[in-house]
Amino acid sequence: MNDPLHLFELHPLVTLTPFGVDVSLNKAALMMFLVAGLVILLMTGARASGSLIPTKLQSVAELLVEFIRGMIHDTMGRDGMRFFPLIASLFLFILFCNLLGLIPGAYTVTSQLAVTGVFAVGVYVLSLVVGFRLHGAKFLGILVPPGTPGWLVPLMIPIEIISQLARPVSLAVRLFANMTAGHVILGVLFALTISGGWALGWLPFSFTVALYGLEVGIAFIQAYIFTVLTCVYMGDALHPH
């Protein structure tokens, strides 16, 4: 309890080293399997009835799908719908990771920079691949913003390269930092509650309750930001300028 970061440490639960490759299962990997399973279960469960008058689960799923579709239409336009499966799975996975991580005893997978980094770099590389496939070498034109005077071009290209490279970095760091910071604050306040005892413990505990509500909101907002920025980057690849 003295170290507020100890809850982010990972230790192997099951040690697996086939052929000398370490694929041991730890809490984070277990959580990821759980989250993926839960999302698949909920979504196929919502589809199962398929009735015109939606069941409770079905209307929640329809709300989510409509929400993601609106996000794609606003940022990418109509032809962005071909990325709907990617965007929807990304959003649902991150949202459920964030939300399930708030359950005491569970592990917040998105508080690992490795996880958010792989997501961010993967999404960014995919947007580059899509851009070059659709537009060929013309896609390099994103490095020169329209309306740049000729003498500014040598200066603008390094600036644009930096702002392009900053995209995956900011995507990964934002999600990771928000989730980690929220859980550190919650951990510190719980530790204060315990050390405060009956006389003073109620004060940090009431803060914990309030912050918990805020964290639920942050879980939604961060999942939303991550996916909407993914949409924006994909949209840039689909329609440069």
Binding site: I162, S163, L165, A166, R167, V169, S170, V173, R174, A177, I221, I225, L229
Partner: peptide, 14 residues
């Protein structure tokens, strides 16, 4: 929320 981290990330990368 997106603007702040974007500026910081550009500085870090540059």
């Amino acid at each position: 929320l997106r603007v702040g981290t974007q500026m910081l990330a550009s500085l870090i990368v540059g």
